[in-house]
């Protein structure tokens, strides 16, 4: 699809959607938001890019292949379950690291955040794989070995 309005709009909208997705990811654990919804917003931005500028541009934006992003997300999410072992707590127990930034400001970092980042990447990777499969030729039909 080639539309000037869509392309101009995408240039403004897509970065804002990415920012919004990061905001949702960050506030997620105790407030509405989280890795899943953040990932979906980010995917919408990337899908918008794909619709406005074509699938090739979408792939360039992602840098890595969507499946690799999903794989990295799965790894990060799985790793977030493990630090609890060092603390002698069960699998997936949330751990918080509260960094004091001075002036009374505290930066809470936690394993749930790490998990959310993993989910965020998995959602982006997974849904982008699907979109790529639908926009381009289905990946199945390059092999034919009897039947």
């Amino acid at each position: 699809m080639s539309s000037l309005i869509l392309r101009a709009g995408t240039r403004i909208l897509a970065p804002m959607m990415i920012m919004l997705s990061l905001f949702l990811l960050w506030r997620g654990h105790n407030l509405p938001g989280g890795g899943f919804i953040g990932g979906l917003v980010a995917t919408s931005a990337i899908a918008l890019q794909g619709i406005a500028f074509g699938p090739a541009s979408m792939r360039r934006t992602l840098v890595f292949s969507p499946a690799v992003i999903a794989g990295a997300g799965v790894l990060i999410a799985a790793l977030s379950a493990l630090p609890a072992a060092l603390a002698g707590l069960p699998f997936f127990t949330g751990l918080w690291l509260k960094l004091d930034l001075g002036n009374g400001a505290v930066l809470p970092l936690s394993t749930p955040l790490l998990f959310d980042i993993g989910v965020y990447l998995t959602v982006i990777g997974g849904v982008c794989t699907l979109i790529a499969a639908l926009e381009e030729e289905p990946a199945l039909d390059d092999v034919e070995t009897g039947g």
């Binding site: 997974g126 699907l130 499969a133 639908l134 289905p138 199945l140 039909d141």
Partner: peptide, 16 residues
């Protein structure tokens, strides 16, 4: 997820 897969499959089935 399941529906998305099934739709892609239906599309491939239609093509092939």
């Amino acid at each position: 997820g399941l529906l998305a897969f099934a739709l892609v499959l239906a599309w491939v089935a239609y093509e092939r």
